[in-house]
Design a protein around this nucleic acid. Structure first.
Lengths: 247, 247
DNA sequence: TCAAAAGTGTTTTTAGTACACCCATGG
DNA sequence: CCATGGGTGTACTAAAAACACTTTTGA
């Protein structure tokens, strides 16, 4: 038996059938009160002209998450993506890409709505699509690869993480009000929540949101100024805020 | 611009730096009342002699889950693995494998304890290791690659899925008793549960477990015979059975 | 008859829900 | 003054936790 060094020197990485690893990012945000995903119109084969998640091939020297953040920064024209990002799942059906065997590691990213979605040179090629228009509408856009599936999984992950985590705050710019967070829940879950009970619930978890000394100034027809908060250290909501079960 | 067919004909899959995609499987089971993982002693470089999760390179014509089931069947000497399996996460730190860039898609598998863990030719090279001995003990075995991390993630996934899913039944051979399920919770969570309340809780979710007409025959010092159950169609526990929060 | 394990009953405590009502602002 | 949110109080309901007690077996 050879020793490890000799083994590694003679190892040929090209001895196996080629596979590519990509990252795809489902970037979710609230746009006009609707849960939306950033999509980019493909300017190259395959799926030329179809809408796709931002993403691309991983480079040899970077981690998967670094690749995801890099792609996101490139495709949204920001220096660095500093929003929430977490690994979602990997997709590796043999024929999901016509070029070759491609395994894609999908990431879920969440950011407050900032007016930054625009592709490198051509801003018209990137836009936020409401989830309802992508997945349920009759005139839904043609999506590249298995990206419809990835978006479905990203939305379901988001919906369920609202139950037991502080994820909703990732949708809000600091400082925010409790009503801002409530509107996140309402948009993502598609149901109304009682403002009074919601307020108590959020405040019940120590360290979830931290009250500031500031208040909002009411717009339009008035209303009492709302206290402003910033994110706290707590990442889990306990007890959780459960969606009522479909009986 | 070329058309898609021409583009694909001229596409060279070897134009990019080589990457490999592997699957690794964290197979968890209860062994002598302890949550345990199947590990295999490596007979090849790299990490020769270290303990590793079963796994291997994916083949071009199979899906990721098929690869995981195939590896599991090969390394446990069963025809087909028919237990629970779900994707866990992917691991792609650039230097996690000294041979080349390897991205591993990890799977979590759960099975009742059956006396089948044994490697292809040499049965002494595969065994169930209690999680406590792998992750916390002083004389913990040397684990290959980042497999300690994968096992940690698999255990945490399992612990949290017990809260809201029917996953515990995957640890039990049918038919089983409610006490069997309770012992799964107690082993995985490392805490005692009230048998009376646990029983009511399990029965509260319609279709989770289905009562049979049979009963166990008590062993040793007696005890009332327990009703036997099989798995039902329900996959989610509602309301969930929460671990009490670390205050 | 005792110990052991399954299973039921019941009380107490905690958390969720519904909704009345007060607060602070704009118009 | 009214409309519009923000925010508190409180009664009602559902679920969790604790634990006493009955059932059915082996020894």
């Amino acid at each position: 038996m050879t020793d490890e060094q000799t083994y590694l020197e003679h190892y040929d990485p090209r001895a196996f059938p080629p596979v590519a690893v990509t990252v795809d990012i489902a970037l979710l945000t609230l746009h006009n009160g609707q849960l939306s995903a950033l999509l980019i119109k493909r300017a190259e084969h395959p799926y030329l002209g179809a809408w796709a998640l931002p993403g691309g091939f991983t480079r040899t020297e970077e981690t998967l998450e670094e690749a995801a953040r890099r792609e996101l920064a490139e495709e949204t024209a920001v220096q660095t993506f500093d929003g929430h990002i977490e690994q979602l799942a990997s997709y590796g059906t043999p024929d999901r890409d016509p070029r070759m065997r491609v395994v894609s590691v999908a990431y879920l990213a969440i950011t407050p709505e900032t007016p930054r979605p625009n592709a490198g040179g051509d801003a018209s090629q990137a836009r936020l699509w409401p989830i309802a228009d992508i997945l349920e509408a009759e005139d839904a856009p043609a999506l590249a690869f298995d990206h419809a599936r990835i978006i479905t999984d990203a939305v379901e992950r988001t919906r369920s993480k609202l139950e037991y985590s502080s994820l909703a705050t990732a949708f809000c710019e600091e400082p925010f009000t409790i009503a801002d967070i409530r509107r996140v829940y309402e948009s993502v879950w598609g149901r109304q929540l009682d403002p009074a009970n919601f307020q108590r619930k959020l405040l019940a978890t120590e360290g979830l949101i931290v009250p500031l000394d500031d208040f909002t100034t009411p717009t339009a027809g008035g209303g009492r100024p709302a206290r402003l908060y910033r994110r706290g250290n707590a990442t889990t909501l306990y007890p959780p805020l459960l969606r009522t079960h479909p009986a």
